[in-house]
Amino acid sequence: MTRKTWITLAAMVALAVLPPVFYWTGNAFYLDLATRLTILAIAAVSLNLILGYGGLISFGHAAYLGLGAYAVGIPAYHWLYDGIGDWATNGFVHIGLAVAITSTFALITGAICLRTRGVYFIMITMAFAQMIYYLIVSIETYGGDDGLVIDTRSEFPGLNLDKPLQLFGLAYVSLVVVMLLVNMIVNSRFGMVLQAAKGNNERTVTLGFNTYIFQLVAYVISGAIAGYAGALLGNFTTFISPEMMDWRTSGELMFMVILGGTATILGPVLGSAAFILLEEILVDSLTWVEHLLDGILGMKIELSNYWHLPFGLLLIIIVLYVRGGLMGLINRKED
């Protein structure tokens, strides 16, 4: 096995082992953090399929995440307030809805978006996501701008998502399955064509492949996986707001993929971990320095509210000096 595979395995084992240990040692919040990053990692892995391997930079991926979450929230809402049947809390129904809605949305918008290239593609995917965003904002019943509280989580036989460990377990297993799935796809003939189209679309077309169809299929698969991640996210936050689907969230998903390393299997996972953990680490360590300064100098200097500054600087440094994101760091040592 290569060094990269070892690191991937080690990282995934660490992600499986550490959060429960934190939980058992009375740090439930760190399990929450891990669940959040695992779910976002699924979305990032799905985005990487089209962005990294397909060269299709989608700036609207948060819409799928949001639609997936609303696919949990809306049935739960009607179950609670309109007394529709218990099927409305069934997890398989939620996931089925999430995947069906997001893949349909991906199919329709993808068919239009894929007519464009490059930056135009980035912007048109964002446009469709913004439309969904404003659509949800305008639906008063589901909370509009204020968002919707999900009063009951998805129900699966033998699984209780109200238990944080079980929810984490589901998210983790899903992440592993999705990583294997994406790995399988990119190494298949289908994936080869997708990657070839990224490198040189005209040549691939000349070779007799209808790249448009290949890219559309990849776009739909990616959207469906993100929708699934959204359903998990809704179960995790038990709250959804349109803000979860605006362009900032799409941007953050994109940054996770780029930060981790595009067109790698582990990259998006590392990227989302870095993105989520850095905030905690920066805020906590700045708060710690605040206390330290307070103790030594006897004056209160506010630092923790400015955590975006070191965070932004880190992003810039990584872009300027580390090619290929965090995976680039790992790969470089291999040479």
Binding site: L51, I57, G118, V119, I122, G251, M254, F255, I258, L259, T262, H308, L309, F311, G312, L313, L314, L315, I316, I318, V319, L320
Partner: peptide, 14 residues
């Protein structure tokens, strides 16, 4: 372009 986007996003934060 992806690197531009990430780098300038960092610049916004800073």
């Amino acid at each position: 372009h992806l690197d531009h986007v990430l780098g300038t996003f960092g610049a916004i934060l800073v």
